[in-house]
Design a protein around this nucleic acid. Structure first.
Length: 376
RNA sequence: GGAGGAGUAGCGAAGUGGCCAAACGCGGCUGACUGUAAAUCAGUUCCUUCGGGUUCGAUGGUUCAAAUCCACCCUCCUCCA
């Protein structure tokens, strides 16, 4: 990677927590960290236009290599001029490698040293992904940040299994890095190792030796208890270089994100805000709101009085409930806008708190205010 | 006035002697969701002190046993006049 096109500029480290504030420079623009990145697996954040995602304050949007390779095909995306042009998003993007699908589609795949063979979820056809072929696909898709192909193992597995998996993931990371040909895409390595301290350390250290452009923490938020998840992060971050971005993959609940920031993580992504929005669950400053609840039938107040999103500025709970009940597309859109804006706004406040060396207080107050009613 | 048809849980609709507190759908309510096979999935929906109690338009009857058979009444629909 050309270091002038992609680099992290750390501007401030919170004296209270060690949380980092900085600017991530990418070929498609600069973004502030810590940040939350909405997920647009199929080159679309479900229910939203790219303009709407941008208006929520989003910087980076994710897409998925496995899914885009099956539909429409990486060649189509390449012919369009890259994923940003294809979906008309004028901002930085990131592609996940398909490593998560090794976990989520575990019933229909086989792992070998060479790679992973999926019976794909669309028509059952066999398709093979190797660390090299995934990089080739990601180069065609053309995101600013690309992920190494890893195995995201389930939780729990034995130390023995995890050790073998980590070693394989490390070999895959090396192979992928060697296969990279473009110099305008940042390639991240992914730290695995489950809740095993020695394996996390080993994995992180070996990846750092390979000199990636950034480092992800993977294998979290897949059903493990909260304290285990925090351990996974705390066993990984200390071995990562300070001048490279740190990305906690798949984390999107409020407390997880805030704790992650306190531990020195810069980037987060998650389907949670958009998925639960489509299912009628909203994150608000007063905690979770289930818009389907009958108590909102005659409630003509905004979803969240403190929120500055398009939805909260223009629509009432009663109307949003009505749209949800009728399964109207606009409901999914307006609710998704709110949840994404809510998280991104939280990140904006978090960055301010870091700059003012009070992130620890901010985190504790936010979680307290958000409530433990039913945290996400 | 005549002929035919129908009344089942919030709504729609199966069931036409015992396996029926009654399929299924909708509506209602409750959960779940974390690098998206997710516009998905799961539970619940007569009352209950969980022992049981009271239901299938009403009443009466036949039967060991009735939402289901008989009588009568009420209501609604369609067609004919």
């Amino acid at each position: 990677m050309d270091k002038s096109k992609f680099y992290l500029e750390i501007k401030h480290i919170c004296k209270q927590t060690g949380a980092r504030y900085g600017i991530l420079h990418t070929p498609h623009g600069d973004v502030e960290v810590p940040m939350f990145m909405p997920v647009g697996t199929l080159a679309t954040v479900k229910a939203l236009s790219p303009e709407e995602v941008k208006q929520c304050g989003a910087g980076v949007i994710l897409a998925n290599t496995y899914h885009l390779s099956l539909r429409p095909g990486a060649d189509v995306v390449k012919a369009a001029g890259g994923v940003q042009k294809f979906m008309n998003y004028n901002g930085p993007m990131l592609t996940d490698s398909g490593g998560f699908q090794v976990f989520s589609l575990a019933d229909n795949r086989k792992i070998t040293e060479e790679g992973v063979t999926f019976k794909n979820h669309l028509n059952g056809a066999k398709c093979f992904y190797s660390p090299e072929s995934v990089i080739e696909l990601e180069e065609k898709i053309g995101a600013d940040i690309i992920m190494s192909f890893d195995e995201c193992p389930p939780w729990p597995v034995t130390h023995h299994y995890m050790e073998e998996s980590v070693e394989r993931t490390l070999r895959w990371a090396k192979r992928g890095k060697e296969a990279q040909t473009r110099d305008d895409q940042a390639l991240f390595g992914i730290v695995q190792g489950g809740e095993f301290k020695d394996l996390r350390k080993h994995c992180a250290e070996e990846l750092v030796k390979m000199d990636f452009d950034g480092y992800s923490i993977g294998g979290t938020s897949i059903g493990e208890p909260k304290d285990v998840m925090f351990e996974m992060v705390s066993y990984s971050v200390p071995y990562l270089p300070e001048d490279k971005p740190r990305y906690l993959m798949g984390v999107g609940s409020i407390d997880y994100i805030l704790e992650g920031i306190a531990m020195g993580v810069d980037m987060f992504d998650c389907v949670l805000p958009t998925r639960i929005a489509r299912h009628g669950a909203l994150m608000t400053s007063k905690g979770r709101v289930n818009i389907r609840d009958a108590k909102y039938e005659y409630d003509f107040s905004p979803l969240d009085e403190e929120c500055d999103c398009y939805t909260c500025k223009n629509y009432t709970k009663a109307y949003l409930r009505h749209l949800y009940k009728c399964d109207e597309t606009l409901g999914k859109r307006l609710l998704s806008i709110h949840n994404i804006r809510f998280l991104i706004h939280m990140m904006e406040e978090a960055r301010t708190a870091i700059k003012e060396d009070r992130f620890g207080d901010f985190k504790d107050e936010f979680i307290k205010k958000y409530g433990d009613k039913r945290g996400f």
